[in-house]
């Protein structure tokens, strides 16, 4: 990679998703960069291709589909689309980690939280024996789970939605990834819990200097969290820029329409 400050350089990425019924051209040749330590937001409505973009970088097909990718995804000098499956599997979770919207389906309901994190730690680090559990407890503590030693022995259903999302974030950061992709990480959560999770993500990013790719439909979520925003519409990036610029002077008509539709708490409500 020419520019050493970039960790991700995506050029002309396309993704076609084949479901049982049809083939969808979900991502239509998008290009973007993410610098080391930078947070970039992807905003758009459902079906705009923002989630598929994230999965394309991870080379994961949405469930029950297959995905055909084109273009290049240059991650720290390697084109991820050229890697073999084994190398890719090794990279996933270790260098690039992902947090999904629904924290329940991403956890194994019959395993304790602790043993699920243990497995990841064992797979991706050199730690062995009791050091593994120590690391697990440390991670749970890091994401703000009270009594981590005891809570490690709980099953997912004993955790609230917000706590489960914290666990997933713990798993995601367990290997100190260079890039964390968060796909609607707070959409299923209550507003106060959402604020907690956003604060947690912000803190972890600052402490670890990791890059963040934040995917959301909510302009409010993206506003305080990222430096740059890419607005997606029908598989394309229609606007890209610093978060201040995009919010203050949206250039694209679609961005303006979206921002205009967002209900705001701080401006006047219903005219009585």
């Amino acid at each position: 990679m020419s520019d050493p400050t970039l960790i991700l350089r995506v050029r002309n990425l396309t993704a076609r998703i084949a479901t049982r019924k049809e083939e969808i051209h979900a991502v239509r040749g998008i290009s973007f960069d993410i610098a080391a330590g930078e947070a970039v937001g992807f905003v758009g409505e459902s079906g705009c291709g923002k989630s598929v973009t994230a999965r394309a970088i991870m080379r994961l097909a949405p469930e029950g589909t297959s995905i055909a990718l084109g273009g290049s995804v240059d991650f720290m000098g390697q084109d991820l689309l050229q890697l073999d499956e084994k190398a890719m599997r090794d990279l996933r979770g270790r260098r690039i980690a992902m947090v999904f919207q629904d924290p329940m389906t991403s956890l194994n309901p019959v395993m304790t939280i602790g043993s699920q994190i243990d497995d990841i730690v064992r797979r991706h680090t050199e730690l062995r024996g009791r050091a593994i559990r120590q690391r697990t407890v440390e991670l749970l503590n890091l994401v703000g789970i009270p009594n981590p030693e005891r809570r490690a022995d709980n099953h997912p259903h004993q955790f609230s939605g917000g706590m489960r999302q914290r666990v997933l974030i713990a798993i995601a950061i367990s290997c100190d990834p260079d890039l964390l992709i968060a796909d609607e990480p707070t959409t299923a959560l209550d507003v106060t819990v959402q604020a907690q999770i956003l604060r947690l993500l912000m803190r972890l990013r600052e402490e670890r200097g990791m890059s963040l790719m934040l995917i959301t439909h909510d302009f409010g979520v993206v506003a305080g969290m990222v430096e740059r925003v890419n607005v997606m519409y029908r598989g394309e990036i229609v606007e890209s820029g610093s978060v201040e610029r995009v919010f203050a002077e949206p250039a694209h008509e679609y961005t303006r329409a979206l921002l205009h539709a967002v209900p705001r708490l701080d401006t006047a409500g219903r005219v009585l």
């Binding site: 507003v191 106060t192 959402q194 604020a195 907690q196 956003l198 604060r199 912000m202 909510d218 302009f219 409010g220 979520v221 506003a223 305080g224 969290m225 978060v243 201040e244 919010f247 921002l259 967002v262 705001r264 708490l265 701080d266």
Partner: peptide
Amino acid sequence: QMLLNAVPIPDPIIQRKRLRLTP
């Protein structure tokens, strides 16, 4: 008050400040 403070506001400058506040 807590609920209202948690609602994200689509304004980068205001929202960044809000996130910095410890609830």
